[in-house]
Design a protein around this nucleic acid. Structure first.
Lengths: 215, 215
DNA sequence: GTCTATACTAGGATAGAC
DNA sequence: GTCTATCCTAGTATAGAC
């Protein structure tokens, strides 16, 4: 994951892996207890180490939190966002975006659940101005991602494939239904990806069929 | 709100109002910063008083949290749950339940948002056995509420009004889309209920039309 | 690069005045 | 019934050994 093509720069390579391991532990810890409910000791325990390791890679808990969000949005743009600019009719693109987003919620559950639970809250005032800037940036990227969906829906309406409706509101409903997966979905040990595909497929069918003109 | 018909029992009356005021302040505070992110001082500030007032009515922060959940589920059963047992065809009942639930999310935003953000998390271990029992009860009531929706969908499928699909999964999507309203909806000062009705109506149309057999 | 030890503060909860 | 004063634990962050 996130391994660079070049394996020559070993120092940087290992630095990235250590950092990625901390980030992964943080995502899982935040997923369980939320931002405020998670202590750095919890993150360290998830990691199988101590506080010292965490603080070696991240200056503060807030920085860790931001990086989880950042990674989650990267996954979204790469996984579903890219489809917005691919070929195909608007409703076909939308259908693929919805399916991809549904799968992302399950395959990257820790990151996505933390992201879904919101960036705005959790940080009551005790932030530096630099952190507030990062926060604004995270919100902006999330809004931008949502706008990709709205645009495709509007294209679908213009093309006559989707019946006329409030595109912004429908996308709120659509992404709400999908983001909600992170709240109830619990992966099984025996989970091979088959069950995830079934959930994504069923959910996509439901959410898209309500948009089509006629039936 | 929650005023009893009889005004003779003034002592109990006032005791309830004081308690209700604390609960209301807690719901608003939790809505902003989540459970762990909210201090008792924050609740007191919302209330326009001090800690002492809060602890006079509630023994602990966890008890306050549970009561917010309890009140939110009471609102749901009263507002949308009751419709499940009313007359009309399954899909008509479902439509009314969905509309009612959407409106509940907006009219009781503080309580509903706290409820939506989850009971399970936020309480990492530091709970008494009595509190754990209350927690299990809260989860059970939420599941029971969800099952009302599933039952009506299954009735609709049996009646041939709704096309055959995974009722449990569709309800997850449906309630997810509706619960998500608490995440993005921000009431305006000029909000007369007109705009809330429009949102509820538009969302209901979208979520129901994907279920109907044919178009 | 990872650990232990420690400083420092925020916040839950209680006691007791008014 | 509401306040102020205080106790005490939990948790962020840092220093410095290994």
């Amino acid at each position: 994951m996130a391994r660079r093509a070049s394996d020559t720069d070993d120092v940087l390579e290992e630095r990235n892996e250590g950092r990625a391991a901390v980030l992964d532990a943080a995502a899982r810890a935040f997923m369980h207890d939320g931002y405020a409910g998670t202590s750095i000791d919890d993150v360290a325990e998830q990691l199988g180490g101590t506080k010292g390791r965490v603080y070696h890679y991240y200056r503060s808990k807030a920085d860790l939190f931001f990086d989880v969000h950042s990674e989650s949005m990267r996954q979204n743009f790469e996984g579903a966002g890219a489809i917005a600019h691919e070929g195909g009719s608007p409703i076909d693109r939308l259908e693929r975006m919805v399916r991809a987003h549904a799968l992302l919620m399950m395959t990257h559950l820790p990151y996505q659940r933390v992201s879904v639970l919101g960036v705005e809250m959790h940080l009551a005032g005790n932030t530096t101005s630099k952190q507030r800037a990062t926060l604004r940036d995270a919100i902006a990227r999330r809004d931008e991602y949502e706008r990709l969906f709205v645009q495709v829906v509007e294209d679908g309406i213009a093309a006559g494939e989707i019946r006329p409706l409030d595109a912004a509101l429908v996308v709120k409903g659509l992404l709400g239904a999908l983001n909600w997966i992170t709240i109830w979905y619990r992966p099984r040990e025996t989970d091979t990806g088959e069950s995830r595909m079934r959930i994504a497929e069923e959910m996509t069918t439901y959410l898209i069929s309500g948009l089509r003109r006629r039936g």
